[in-house]
């Protein structure tokens, strides 16, 4: 029994080492607005490769995620599609003060799955044959609100209103178009940038208020070094090039 003692001791040492490394490779839970889904996954992979920390994402509309945050959801970082909700989260004590920043500026796109439907102009929106235009719920999804502003700026909102179909998030707005159930829809450029099979019109910036997407550290992640590292990584060169690659504007 006595001579097994050193072996036992080294075993304990190995165990302590293991626990030590485990504590360093943390896991974080990030709530992400639906339009940023693809970019967030790429950034997560790059972040894990760079730091060893793992990231789990929960995707939804900004409004839905915010409601969950106010109801004690375990999210540690919030990547919203607007500035209003991260501000509100800070004001209401769900976010750590002075951790807010704009990580991306969204671009709105009128998109069709059919290569012939849109000719690079908004003309299709005036067509009497158009039966359905999809967009995201303007109350919960900033891209939906931007779509409404665009239609108002074009003077077509009242005419299009009866033909608007509403998705719960920008993902569902895209899905309605992708399945062909809506001929065209307002989506985020980031969602379809990798897909050149359809047709589209990139909505000019001056037709809608800028979609500044803010990130914030939530109170639940306030003591998690990995969560802070994630937010730092999000502002680094590697993440910025991923974000730009998905068609977002970066830097204010």
């Amino acid at each position: 029994m006595n001579f097994s003692h050193p072996a036992l001791r080294s075993g304990v040492c190995a165990l302590a080492l293991l626990i030590g490394t485990a504590a360093q490779a943390d896991e974080i839970l990030v709530a992400v607005a639906a339009n940023f889904t693809a970019a967030a996954k790429d950034i997560g992979t790059a972040f894990t490769a760079a730091t060893g920390h793992t990231v789990s994402y929960s995707f939804g509309s900004t409004g839905q995620l915010y409601t969950q945050i106010t109801q004690d959801a375990p999210f540690e970082v919030f990547l919203a599609a607007d500035q209003a909700r991260p501000e509100k989260a800070e004001a209401e004590g769900f976010a750590v003060p002075d951790t807010r920043f704009t990580y991306a500026t969204g671009k709105l796109l009128l998109w069709s799955a059919d290569p012939e439907t849109i000719d690079g102009t908004p003309d299709i929106l005036s067509s009497p044959d158009l039966t359905h235009v999809s967009y995201a719920n303007p109350q919960t999804a900033p891209y939906g609100a931007a779509a409404v502003e665009t239609m108002q700026a074009l003077g077509l909102y009242d005419a299009l209103k009866p033909r608007l179909v509403e998705g719960k998030s920008i993902s569902q707005a895209q899905q309605f178009v992708a399945t062909g159930n809506a001929e065209v829809g307002f989506v985020a450029l980031s969602q379809v940038i990798a897909d050149d099979s359809g047709s589209s019109w990139l909505v000019p910036d001056d037709l809608y208020s800028p979609i500044r997407q803010d990130a914030v550290l939530l109170v639940k992640g306030g003591n998690n070094e990995a969560a802070k590292a994630y937010l730092a990584f999000l502002q680094g060169a590697e993440a910025l090039s991923i974000i730009e690659g998905y068609g977002y504007g970066v830097g204010q």
Binding site: T131, H132, V165, F176, T179, G180, N181, A182
Partner: peptide
């Protein structure tokens, strides 16, 4: 969807 047999049968799309 627009090109499905159901849509052809009904004569118009039923979604929404």
């Amino acid at each position: 969807g627009p090109s499905s047999p159901l849509t052809t049968l009904v004569g118009r799309p039923l979604a929404f």
